[in-house]
Amino acid sequence: MATEAHGSEAAAEGSSLVFHPMDQFMVEPLFGDGAVGMFTITNSALWMFIAILAIVGLMVVGTSRRAIVPTRSQSIAELAYGFVYKMIEDVTGKDGLVYFPYIMTLFMFIVSANFLGLIPMSFTTTSHFAVTVVLAMAVFLTVTILGFVKNGSKFLGLFWVSSAPLALRPILAIIELISYFVRPVSHSIRLAGNVMAGHAVIKVFAGFAAIAVISPVSILAITAMYGLEILVAFIQAYVFTILTCVYLKDALHPSH
């Protein structure tokens, strides 16, 4: 309520200092201005399509020459391939490589959505919980089902810490169970929260730029934040992917 009141009052007064840091996250229909239905093509959908185009451009068009000595785009595609491949190999193990295309899909979508979101006036799809929760729940459900399919009831050994004293085990089991179900929550909120916070902070600094005295500092701060956001864009994609690998490892090898 407080933010609503503040935002609308500031707008109503028409003062030079107007903060709408959250407006950039609004989902709007691209054509017309009716309500957003299930199949409406929105700015969110548009930037998802652009993410698809970017991934196709890099991974398909960029590698179309199949050069032994790679071109720049092919080199980046191979780098992304090797990065995720090595991550699965190191974290999950050789038997996790079967799921390489799934994890690669997650990584490529998040990393391109994060970087596309850094283009001014663009829409950052990964700043929405609706998106990251779907990604995290997909990982959570896949990993849980996979754990039971691969290991049967032995998968429950994940919660029964056999190396701890017997008396502590039931308590640890409850803690492990809670932490297991908190995984998709932290997994999704970490990504969306980081991306959203950075973008909102940039918008707040941009609002301060309207005051002539502060504007040089403000623009410097925006530049610094932008640099930080470039880091965050990659690191959050990396963190999401490596956590997926860790969860997958738990499903394939549930023993501690």
Partner: peptide
């Protein structure tokens, strides 16, 4: 005024649309 009320991330009206296009996007990728 066309501004967001609260956090747009928590707006229930858009979730169905976002999830639908996200699933399409992920399948295509």
């Amino acid at each position: 005024h066309g501004s967001a009320l609260g956090m747009p991330q928590l707006c229930g009206d858009w979730i169905g649309n976002q999830v639908f296009w996200l699933v399409i996007t992920l399948v295509v990728i």
